[in-house]
Design a protein around this nucleic acid. Structure first.
Lengths: 209, 209
DNA sequence: TCAAAATGTGACTAGAAGCTCACATTCTAC
DNA sequence: GTAGAATGTGAGCTTCTAGTCACATTTTGA
């Protein structure tokens, strides 16, 4: 019997070569991000993206094999912006206090979530991730930021438990930040103080046993 | 000009009166929960739910005005199960240590997330919430569990900051638990120990200023 | 200048999925 | 027993949307 092969969209698309098409791709991605943020993944459509971008639906499929690949490009760009927002102070500088390190990290994380809150939530919660690798690379780099603070606080390097502590601390901070974002309280100074308190309490408990 | 009124699905449905129909509704909701967990919200279809339940598609629409209302019934039942999994020890019993209270709470939260991990994630992350009120009532009750532990730890009652502390602590615990769930490490004893450590460190820092 | 490559267009197709409705079956109450 | 209510059925209507393709326009390079 003839096996039914469902028609697959072509997965290889041409790369934009001329300046004109590079600009088109940028316009498409930016419009797509706006539509994705506004509608959520469930109601994110390529047709609305095209009309928002002021571009033909065909132009989107010139450069993106399908809807998901468009969302992945958005995620890639967004995660770069997130990492750029999180800078941690020099580890070897002993004059920086634990509180200052924790505050810098938390300010970075809050800033990262403030860039485009709604888009951030949609990308993380709704859009399915086809390619693990890109996401994993981001997560590894993200955890490295936490581990740097933990090692500075514990006064040692690369202990096995530091990796675990980094994941616990990042999970905790992310959890509180996400809850605050849901309630529109990302900019609250009380939240900031409480988060720094939480982080410091945990960091101190690490070196204290 | 005649204004176009887009056809709305009837929002009022009959209630199951006979035992037969009550059983049908239960079968539908249970099948829907399995389909929702397996496919995710994006690919959750009423047709698959009907065939999984061994019921006609029409029967679903006898009792649920639309797809979302079906998901809401699933959420309602699931949140009840979650709350049932979280029991906190008697607040007035002074013989229970801080560690024991924290451990009981965290074991409850982990158990709650273990009931049906995939369904839990889909319900919280993917299914849009139409009716805030039910979700809010759950969240209030959920936070009350945390607040009980915090008040026992701080040795006082209903301080204004306890509400904030409860939200911070619950956000932190949820964040770590969700991260662990994503990595399939919900049952790890290391996670449990680290979470209790985090909770205790924060609780102690509350009474210490 | 002009041919070929790159880019852009949008009407159209296929298929998926929510939901209806006319009809069949089962149960309840008198 | 039987009328009417409750329950159950599923073909198919309708809407939505991802993705195609034949064609038009612009740019490049020789």
């Amino acid at each position: 019997m003839a096996t039914r092969v469902p028609p697959q969209p072509e997965s290889v698309r041409k790369l934009p070569r001329q300046q004109r098409s590079r600009a088109t791709v940028d316009i498409i991605v930016e419009a797509a991000a706006r539509v994705l943020a506004r509608r959520g993944w469930a109601h994110f459509t390529t047709n609305e993206t095209a009309s928002t971008a002021g571009v033909s639906i065909g132009s989107i499929y010139q450069y993106f094999p399908n809807k998901l690949s468009l969302a992945e490009e958005i995620r890639k760009r967004h995660l770069d912006a997130v990492l750029a927002a999180i800078v941690v102070p020099d580890e070897s500088d002993a004059s920086i206090t634990l509180e200052q390190r924790a505050a810098a990290l938390i300010d970075g994380v809050v800033a990262a979530h403030s860039v485009d809150q709604r888009l951030h939530r949609v990308l993380l919660d709704e859009v399915p991730l086809a390619a693990r690798s890109a996401q994993d690379a981001f997560e590894a780099e993200y955890l490295r930021r936490y581990q740097a603070v933990i090692e500075a606080a514990a006064g040692r390097l690369n202990s096995e438990s530091d990796g675990i502590a980094a994941r616990v601390l990042s999970g905790a901070v992310e959890g509180v930040v996400h809850a605050a974002a849901r309630h529109g309280e990302l900019q609250s100074p009380v939240l900031r103080a409480e988060l720094i308190g939480l982080a410091c309490a945990y960091l101190r408990s690490l070196s204290g046993h």
